[in-house]
Computed example of a mutant assay.
Amino acid sequence: MDRRVRASEKRRRLTAAAARVLHEQGIERTTLADIAREADVPVGNVYYYFKTKDELVRAALSEHRAHLDELTARLEESADPRDRLKGLVSAWVDRRETAARHGCPTGTLAAELDKRTDGTLDAEAGALIRHLLDWTAAQFRLLGLPDPDGHALTLVSAYQGMSLLANALRDPDVMTREGTRLLGWLDSLTPADG
């Protein structure tokens, strides 16, 4: 295998590991050694690819963005924007066990980063949430609903809330019950709604 391909693969493993470990343990509790162990890479190699923990956090945010882009691309295969939104809710519910253990990957990182005063990573986490809001609003807009941005905010807020509660209560059924409510809400919306 070519050296560049191996280096790219190693960086990719480190990025994926950073996203998982930072979500599971939080920024402050995670060490570079934790990420190296998860990626099955010698800890010294981490410094070759990422000079600081903040660079790893940025890579984790990039990984979360890639997952969101993959999900929305799959959802875009449906011609119906309502089905896309329902698919989004179903994808959230499918991750209920993870949410019950660790919360929403992006939401928990955003909350943790907001408490820091040493950088712009909180804004980058916010931009990722904004990306989800924009995609969601575009679906409501395609449905011809008034206030698509408001509907998007309601839907994404509901997801953040149900993820937080599932995590706080350690109860994945919170995601299932609230997901069912959201699906019913999406089915009830008509262009005359406001």
Rank of each mutant, 00 (worst) to 15 (best):
S157N: 11
L182A: 11
Y48L: 15
D171R: 06
T154M: 00
A158S: 15
S157E: 02
G179H: 10
A127V: 04
L109H: 03
L186E: 01
V89Q: 06
R65Y: 08
G184S: 10
D118Y: 00
A100C: 06
R4M: 14
L128H: 06
T120A: 14
Y49E: 07
D94M: 01
A158P: 13
D2Q: 15
T30Y: 00
G194S: 06
K51R: 15
A158D: 03
T117V: 05
R84D: 00
T154H: 05
L32V: 12
L165C: 02
R4I: 14
A127G: 04
D171K: 01
E112T: 06
L22F: 08
D69P: 08
E9I: 08
A192S: 11
T176C: 11
S78C: 07
G126T: 02
K53D: 03
A66R: 13
F140Q: 12
S78D: 02
R11Y: 02
T120N: 12
R130H: 12
A127C: 03
G150Y: 08
H131G: 07
T176P: 14
L121T: 03
E124L: 03
P148W: 11
Y48W: 12
I35E: 05
N167P: 09
L85E: 09
R3A: 15
P146N: 10
V41T: 07
V41Q: 02
A39E: 02
L155I: 11
R170I: 01
E38S: 10
A33N: 12
E24P: 03
L164P: 04
L128W: 06
G184F: 10
E76F: 06
A138L: 13
A60L: 04
E97I: 10
L133G: 15
N167Y: 02
M175P: 04
L155N: 09
D54Y: 07
R12E: 15
L143V: 08
A79Q: 06
Q160V: 11
R12F: 12
W92A: 05
H151D: 04
Q160H: 13
L61M: 00
A16K: 08
Q139L: 10
V93D: 10
L113H: 00
L85Y: 00
D149N: 15
D40E: 14
P172D: 04
L75W: 01
A152V: 13
L133C: 14
K53R: 05
A60G: 08
G126W: 05
G150W: 03
R141K: 14
T108S: 01
V21Q: 02
P146I: 12
